[in-house]
Computed example of a mutant assay.
Amino acid sequence: MCSHQPQCPSYDSPARDAAHIVAFHPEQGWNLLCNGAIVFDDTGEILPDGSIVAPSRLAVAA
Rank of each mutant, 00 (worst) to 15 (best):
M1S: 13
M1H: 12
S3W: 15
H4D: 14
H4W: 13
H4L: 14
Q5M: 12
P6T: 08
Q7H: 02
Q7Y: 04
Q7K: 06
C8S: 06
C8P: 02
P9F: 06
P9E: 07
S10N: 09
S10W: 05
S10M: 09
Y11N: 01
D12K: 01
S13E: 03
P14C: 07
A15C: 06
R16K: 08
D17P: 05
A18K: 05
A18G: 03
A19E: 07
H20R: 08
I21K: 05
I21Q: 02
V22A: 08
A23P: 08
A23Q: 12
F24Q: 02
H25S: 00
E27V: 10
E27I: 12
Q28D: 14
G29T: 02
W30H: 00
N35M: 04
G36W: 07
G36N: 04
I38N: 03
I38F: 08
I38H: 00
V39Q: 05
V39E: 10
V39A: 10
F40C: 14
F40D: 13
F40L: 14
D41G: 12
D42F: 12
T43Q: 14
T43A: 13
G44M: 11
G44D: 10
G44E: 11
E45D: 15
E45T: 15
I46E: 01
I46V: 12
I46Y: 00
P48M: 00
D49S: 03
D49I: 07
D49N: 09
G50A: 03
G50Q: 02
G50I: 01
G50E: 07
S51A: 09
S51W: 00
S51P: 03
I52T: 12
I52E: 01
A54N: 00
A54V: 02
A54S: 03
S56R: 11
S56H: 01
S56T: 11
R57M: 13
L58K: 07
L58M: 10
A59I: 07
A59D: 06
V60Y: 00
V60M: 04
V60K: 03
A62N: 11
A62R: 10
A62P: 08
